[in-house]
Design a protein around this nucleic acid. Structure first.
Lengths: 207, 207
DNA sequence: TGTACATCAGTGAACGCGCGTTCACTGATGTAC
DNA sequence: TGTACATCAGTGAACGCGCGTTCACTGATGTAC
């Protein structure tokens, strides 16, 4: 194993400090509110000093986006494996919503700029990606019920629909319904459950 | 009827020109790309001249947002009334998606800043608002089937779910899945149909 | 262990940019008699 | 219809701001002998 020199340790520590401060600013003021000057001010640094660690502002933002994506993955992976497939799918959706609620700025950051690496259903899915986790959960429901899907409405399309549903809930809650008071948690749980139960319906492909 | 003076006519015409140019810029470069200087340049005007018609940049943006909302309403109102209630609901969702696809910048503008005027399910709904149109379509489906809803999962919650579904589809398509190739139109139609048919299921409230 | 040197981390000033808004102004348009 | 005056639409320069990035630099830290 390679030993870390003090210099390297210091380097990584500073880098982490920068990212943390940047994340705080984004949380407080949104992505538009992030400037290198303020970032430097916050950690008692000169703006030019940041260029020792990152080549541009974009690079900093990209690093934070990656952190956010990792955090989101963790929310989804935290869902227990020993639930019934349908209930697991529901919990998956709720975890997605919880992430969006707990870390709205990460959520916005991820979806405002990060474009999917795949460009069609045929391409290989990045294992461990949020979408992959979701797709597996949907697959488990289908397989548990020994359903055969209509050729048209494939597994991936169902996963996409489920994703759209929770994504829309998360987005609306953050934007248009920001000040709307309701027991969203209960509504979401009920809706997702109906969706998951609906998957068991043999007539899926007949619509 | 009050006669329009030439001065007034000219005034409204210029105002419209400004808004149109602003809308074009937003379409081309997004909201962040809109500046009063460029706007003025485009219509051969000085930036300060704009203040004859609007008190601030925000006022211009707000005017455009209102236009966008009106346009969206038109998309939804265009859905024929003589369809079966379920099919009408489906068409409503597709119209929403079509609007988002045709006018992505309007769509983003509306949902990035415009906050719902209501703050709970109990408050009165603004008639003619997109949400009101949607809610009526959902109501028609329920009534046509003579269903009684479980007390918990009310009409408005169903409308909210449907809205979330189409909203998520629209958002994902514009952001994360921007470069993803698929027959979205077909997938959307199928999914919305399943949703609408699902509403007829008596067990709705038992989930 | 001490010294000479190389590398490194961080600074401060400056560049060049575009922004929204204000304000004193002027020439054109409309109005009253 | 002509004239004197008021109103109006639009200009151009300036204010004050904050931005990302570059660059010559310096003092601190590490390295080789």
């Amino acid at each position: 194993m390679i030993k870390e020199t003090p210099r390297q340790r210091r380097y990584f520590k500073t880098k982490a400090t920068i990212l943390q401060a940047a994340q705080e600013i984004i949380t407080e003021k949104g992505l538009d509110g992030l400037s290198l000057r303020e970032l430097a001010r916050r950690i008692d640094y000169s703006p030019s000093g940041l260029y020792e660690y990152f080549n541009s502002k974009d690079e900093i933002v990209a690093a934070i986006r990656a952190e956010g994506l990792e955090l989101m993955r963790n929310y989804l992976k935290r869902v227990p494996a020993d639930l019934s497939p349908a209930e697991r799918l529901v919990q998956m959706g709720l975890a997605y919503l919880e992430f969006a609620q707990d870390h709205p700025e990460y959520f916005r950051l991820i979806f405002s700029h990060l474009t999917a690496s795949r460009s069609s259903f045929n391409q290989k899915i990045d294992e461990g990606s949020p979408y992959h986790l979701l797709l597996q959960a949907v697959r488990a429901v289908i397989e548990a019920e020994e359903l055969t899907l209509g050729e048209e409405y494939s597994l991936q399309e169902i996963a996409y629909s489920f994703w759209s549903l929770v994504h829309g809930m998360a987005m609306l809650r953050q934007t248009h319904l920001r000040h709307f008071q309701a027991d969203f948690e209960r509504i979401h749980r009920r809706t997702l459950r109906i969706f998951a139960e609906g998957l068991k319906n043999k007539q899926l492909s007949a619509a």
